[in-house]
């Protein structure tokens, strides 16, 4: 397998003592990474706000955990879509010196980093850490439909129904891998399914 340079490389959260504000957006799966990264940095925690995706069916008893973080503010959102709305607003109002931290599954990181990039926040202005779901976001190149949490290739497109091979080619602007018709040269003959989330 050749090294493919377009695959996103996620990092490890490490709060910068120089940043004046810290904006954290994460999924529940990323909470552990946030706890680890922000442990023992009181002065930073007092300048940190957390925006957490908590699905409605998620068990309660988490409030102690959130209180223990000692952040300036904690906001909860029911879905990725709703937290992304807040992310857009936060970035448009923030000042230089604000650092963005993202933690969660691949599909969440894909969408959040591509939104941040569209707002001019990229490179060393954003830190990421991958936790939880390893399913990938895939765009069907034929109908342009997006699918979240794809774990196998080929996969049937949710939108147009074609069988897609997931190419190891990633677009940061779209936050997705490319899915291309798997049986164009031999209709009905599909390659062996393989996991792509490993």
């Amino acid at each position: 397998m050749p090294v493919v340079k377009s695959r996103p490389v996620w990092g490890r959260l490490a709060p910068s003592p120089f940043a004046r504000r810290h904006l954290v957006f994460c999924e529940v799966a990323g909470l552990g990474a946030v706890e680890r990264a922000f442990a023992g940095t009181d002065s930073i925690r007092q300048r940190t706000s957390l925006n957490l995706i908590v699905p409605p069916d998620f068990a309660p008893a988490r409030s102690e955990r959130l209180d223990a973080l000692g952040f300036e503010a904690v906001h909860e959102f029911p879905s990725v879509e709703t937290v992304l709305v807040r992310l857009r607003v936060s970035l448009s109002q923030a000042a230089m010196g604000t650092l963005l931290y993202l933690a969660g599954g691949e599909a969440f990181l894909d969408q959040a980093t591509c939104l941040a990039e569209a707002c001019g926040v990229a490179g060393d202005g954003v830190q990421t850490e991958h936790c939880g779901s390893t399913g990938r976001r895939v765009q069907c190149v034929h109908c342009k439909g997006m699918m979240a949490d794809v774990t196998m290739s080929p996969v049937v497109c949710d939108h147009c129904g074609l069988h897609l091979t997931v190419r190891d080619h990633y677009s940061r602007r779209l936050g997705a891998f490319q899915g291309v018709c798997a049986d164009a040269e031999a209709p009905g003959v599909l390659p062996e399914p393989t996991r792509i989330d490993a």
Partner: peptide, 10 residues
């Protein structure tokens, strides 16, 4: 700029 948290790319 660095002391105020400006990223290198800016």
């Amino acid at each position: 700029a660095r002391a105020l948290g400006w990223p290198e790319t800016s």
